[in-house]
């Protein structure tokens, strides 16, 4: 584990989390959540948990983003806050 890379990726994860809950367009929020999951996947590969990184990249960044985008298309795209 390289602590500089760890800190860098963690800062990106926190930035993505803040952006995902503050953006008003729900489709953008879903895509930013996918980017968040991908940064999380890199964080796990960096921590040595390669199996968790594979699962995160396929299940959370892949299927999760597809589910969120499909739900946004089925409902409304605008959010008030």
């Amino acid at each position: 584990m390289i602590w500089q890379l760890d800190l860098f990726l963690l800062l990106f994860v926190i930035i993505c989390a803040l952006a995902a809950i503050n953006v008003r367009d729900l489709l953008s929020a879903a895509i930013i959540l996918g980017a968040y999951s991908f940064f999380m996947c890199m964080l796990w590969a960096e921590m040595g948990a390669v199996d968790v990184a594979f699962t995160e990249a396929t299940v959370s960044a892949g299927v999760g983003t597809v589910l969120f985008v499909a739900a946004v298309f089925k409902t409304v795209r605008r959010s008030k806050d």
């Binding site: 926190i14 989390a17 803040l18 995902a20 809950i21 729900l26 929020a29 959540l33 968040y36 999760g64 969120f68 739900a71 946004v72 409902t75 959010s79 008030k80 806050d81």
Partner: peptide, 21 residues
């Protein structure tokens, strides 16, 4: 951040994103 989104955001999709975080 996730707890704040679950408590303070009024949109239900935002609450779900907060739960994920």
């Amino acid at each position: 951040i996730g707890l704040y989104a679950m408590l303070a955001k009024r949109n239900l999709v935002k609450k779900l994103i907060g739960m994920n975080i």
